[in-house]
């Protein structure tokens, strides 16, 4: 798409504000917003123009419970370690992902196995993060002997503007455990805490949430959970 054309940029900014840019087009646009101040201005202009439309909506007071829950979350924000788990239940998403991802582990595992320069022995655990449409996005491999995690991006997985993708382990019991930030492309490796590796045996799976740039400020997921995958023990 030609982002150099001012008229087209204008329209794209309008479509973005309307919520009509989706998927890859939306991600590309959000990436551009990081570096392009004029495009940002285009977005703000449209937001302002259309906001007047909301005048016609009759205000509606939210129930008091919203404010109470908000206060709890604010307190948790101030004391990160005592944050109550805001982890949402996503069983439906989960169950669909399980069968699909299991199948993909086999397919993608073979495919990726070849591209690694020095295969460091077989991973103890693997997981494939896939989009809702079933497109594989990352292959995650955990090597228990070397206490390493490899994250191989299988697509260009750029997070939304100003955000990071963060990986979480969903332990058998208790709150999600942070496992680090995801790379948007290529292969990234990190060392893993032995306690996390030990907990993977009984973990319910892995999940990725969208967090503020640099990762969750609280040590718990704060943004939407966008991908979940089961852990396959090899």
């Amino acid at each position: 798409m030609n982002y150099g054309n001012p008229k087209l940029r204008e329209l794209l900014a309008g479509e973005y504000v309307l919520g009509l840019l989706r998927g890859a087009a939306r991600r590309r646009f959000q990436r551009l917003l990081i570096e392009d101040a004029r495009l940002c201005k285009g977005v703000v202009d449209w937001e302002g123009k259309l906001a007047a439309w909301n005048r016609n909506l009759k205000p509606l007071a939210p129930p008091d419970s919203v404010w109470r829950k908000l206060q709890v979350r604010l307190k948790a924000d101030a004391q990160p370690r005592e944050k109550p788990s805001g982890w949402p239940a996503r069983r439906a998403l989960w169950s669909g992902a399980v069968t699909l991802a299991t199948a993909l582990v086999l397919v993608v595992g073979v495919f990726i196995g070849r591209s690694l320069v020095t295969p460091p022995g077989a991973p103890a655990y693997v997981a494939v993060m896939s989009s809702a449409q079933g497109r594989p996005l990352w292959l995650i491999s955990v090597y228990s002997k070397s206490r390493r995690i490899d994250m191989q991006a299988l697509a260009n997985n750029t997070p939304p503007a100003g955000k990071s993708y963060e990986l979480w382990m969903l332990p058998g019991h208790g709150k999600p455990v942070a496992m680090g930030l995801m790379n948007s492309e290529g292969l990234a490796s990190a060392s893993l805490n032995p306690r996390i590796i030990a907990a993977l045996v009984s973990a319910k799976g892995l999940a990725i949430s969208i967090e503020p740039y640099g990762g969750s400020p609280t040590g718990q997921p704060t943004g939407p959970v966008v991908y979940v995958a089961p852990i396959v023990s090899t």
Binding site: N54, L57, K58, P59, L60, A61, P62, P63, S65, V66, W67, K69, L70, R73
Partner: peptide
């Protein structure tokens, strides 16, 4: 501002529980 914002969220999400979550 929450009454105005909540009205927008209810309109777009059609479900009050989602609108409450989004407002938070």
């Amino acid at each position: 501002t929450s009454p105005q914002l909540f009205a927008i969220l209810v309109r777009i999400l059609k479900r009050r529980d989602w609108a409450e979550e989004a407002l938070q």
